[in-house]
Design a protein around this nucleic acid. Structure first.
Lengths: 219, 219
DNA sequence: GTCTATATGACGATAGAC
DNA sequence: GTCTATCGTCATATAGAC
């Protein structure tokens, strides 16, 4: 009884350790910079020796891959309820405002993840094929949502969903990059760049929406 | 005669060496990543020993500062003729298209500079006050140009030049970041993100311009 | 202004005992 | 799965001779 340990329990423990490593790694990156991750420092904070980390990750790049993948999965999680509403959204502006807010808030509150996912802050590292697939998946979900907006007649016809989404992501990436690079300590609510979102949404909606979203003059 | 070396000549030689160091440093960064700069590698390529570099730069951060400063000065140089035309520009769209093209082309053709200037790719480095002043100067020149556009009636009144410029830089930063992070090898002309510039300019001009820029229907 | 020599310290990763 | 020991490499920066 005391000697028989279920394999499941072992496995669970192992997964917990992996998650702890990832969490501590993100913590180190938030203090030292994304490119300043050191496995020695991670081990030190966990109270173990550096070689023990290699039981769970083959290399430092594998740790970055884990952070990269978890980042995109986490974005999936916060965007999913937003995209689920794409059929019920009354107007384009409201939908984009919500989608943009949720995404941007996530990036401001997870700056380490956002930088690793959207910039190239780590010399010599680029995501593995598997890790990259997570990013593609998130983009695909966005594509589906935008295609639905076109179908519903909220977005201009004659343009591909890809093109509409590209312009949209350019806007969001611009806000995120400016905010994280120039005023990273500001909150999502009070950020000098994040607070331009409503105006950018309006700009986007006027240009790419099927009808002007809040025009009084109809004939 | 042979023994008397003019101080001017010494000084000139010294400045040349400094520029060579900066140039080789940028070369190394373009191969190893912006955060992967190594002074040993710079010395190796110059055929000198690492300690000799410290005659010209006090620290590695000073080299980064030099690159950072030269980057903004170089942007000043390419933008100056564009801004000089702000009084002669016929329409908003044309002016913004030219300004955006010149700026974005520069960032795509100087990716190392652009990343150092606009992202935070180097753990532990942030620009010194003097270096930062160069960035502020470039921004100020943009502010002056945008204020002039407001005065000339090409941009909407009732908004500060700051706000108009912020929205504009968000657009450009979004394009730059997406292009450099996701498809850095593509040229300015054929980049999948840089090629959206005309559309973004149109979007911006419709929203922030005083009159719709290319509307056929007038009554 | 260049060099040699060195201080000083990290880092990622592996071998192999327990 | 943890450890000790270590390999091999590289880094920034300084002291002091020439």
């Amino acid at each position: 009884m005391t000697t028989t340990v279920l394999p499941d329990r072992r496995q669970r423990r192992r997964l917990e350790t992996i998650e702890e490593i990832v969490g501590v790694a993100v913590e180190v990156m938030s203090e030292q910079g994304v490119g300043g991750l050191s496995l020695g420092e991670v081990a030190r904070r966990m109270g173990i020796r550096p070689p023990s980390l290699y039981v769970y990750f083959d290399s430092k790049a594998a740790v970055y891959d884990a952070v990269f993948t978890r980042g995109w999965r986490s974005v999936d999680d916060v965007m999913e309820p937003v995209y689920a509403d794409v059929n019920g959204a009354a107007d384009l502006t409201g939908f984009l405002l919500r989608a943009g807010s949720v995404y941007l808030r996530w990036t401001i509150e997870h700056p380490v993840y956002a930088q690793l996912m959207n910039w190239r802050p780590v010399p010599g590292y680029e995501p593995s094929e598997e890790a990259y697939a997570a990013a593609v998946g998130t983009l695909d979900a966005g594509l589906v949502a935008f295609a639905r907006l076109v179908e519903r007649g909220l977005l201009r016809e004659g343009l591909t969903a890809e093109r509409l989404l590209t312009a949209w992501t350019v806007l969001l990436t611009g806000v995120m990059t400016q905010q994280l690079a120039n005023a990273p300590q500001e909150s999502f609510e009070h950020g000098r760049f994040t607070s331009t979102l409503p105006e950018l949404v309006s700009m986007y909606a006027v240009h790419y929406g099927r009808t002007a979203p809040s025009t009084k003059g109809r004939r």
